[in-house]
Amino acid sequence: MKKIILFVAILVTTIAMSQQKAKVHTVNGIEVYILAEPVRQYEIINTAKNSVKWGSYLTGGLINESISTKVSKFVKKLLKDYTQKGIKFDAVLYTSGKNMTAIRFTDEETTTNKGVATIQRLNGIPFFVMSEPIKEYKYINTIGKGIKWKSLVTAGLLNNSIEQDLLKFAKKIENKYRKGKVNAVIYSNGKKAISILIQNI
């Protein structure tokens, strides 16, 4: 009986966490949905591919761009390319790999849906990437990262995707997550993230 109750409790918590809502950040006025799905309806405009990180190449792979820098460069590239072509878009969407999609919303903007997204998970852990939980949360600790070995051994010609960078954070807190000491991660900028405990799940 106790096992059934525990299973139900875990299931309810998992469902609640999978439906966590976030308020996303903006870059140059463009909403960024990184591992997050907008609650608004939208249409895909186009997809931009990543390019070689020359800053990493020139330093032999020892210096790599942060996730927020990668996102910012994507957005600036899209804005430059699409403005020249007369194409307008409202937001960018990233799910995996090294591509980012420009989208345009097709429904009406309201105070309750503007910049709001349902977050995704990495290794089962909810990630708020360049976004903030709508619910209240408690800071637990800071998560750092190490050298990106893929970039180092290729002298900077190959770099991690955003998803691969985030997985490094997930691996560092998976034990605490399993023990219930943390229940989500927030990444805002730079090369560190924070683990948090969301209240009232």
Rank of each mutant, 00 (worst) to 15 (best):
S66A: 09
S66C: 08
S66L: 04
I67K: 01
I67G: 01
T69D: 07
V71I: 12
V71Y: 01
V71E: 00
V71F: 05
V71D: 01
S72G: 09
K73H: 05
K73E: 00
K73Y: 05
K73T: 04
K73Q: 04
K76A: 05
K76I: 08
L78N: 00
L78Y: 00
L78S: 00
K80A: 12
Y82N: 12
Y82V: 02
Y82M: 11
T83A: 13
K85A: 14
G86F: 06
G86L: 04
K88G: 11
K88Y: 10
F89C: 01
D90A: 01
A91H: 02
A91D: 11
V92T: 03
V92N: 02
V92R: 00
Y94P: 09
Y94N: 05
Y94C: 06
S96T: 10
S96N: 15
S96G: 13
N99E: 14
M100L: 14
M100T: 06
T101A: 14
T101D: 15
A102F: 03
D107A: 07
E109N: 14
T110Y: 12
T110G: 13
T110H: 13
T110D: 11
T112M: 12
N113M: 07
G115P: 12
A117M: 04
A117Q: 02
T118V: 10
T118A: 07
Q120C: 10
Q120W: 08
Q120M: 12
R121T: 15
R121Y: 15
L122M: 07
N123H: 12
N123V: 13
N123T: 13
N123S: 15
N123G: 08
P126L: 07
P126T: 09
P126M: 10
F127L: 04
M130L: 03
S131H: 02
S131E: 06
E132F: 10
E132L: 12
E132A: 12
E132W: 09
I134T: 08
K135F: 04
K135I: 12
E136F: 06
Y137R: 00
Y137T: 05
Y137A: 03
Y137D: 08
K138C: 15
K138V: 15
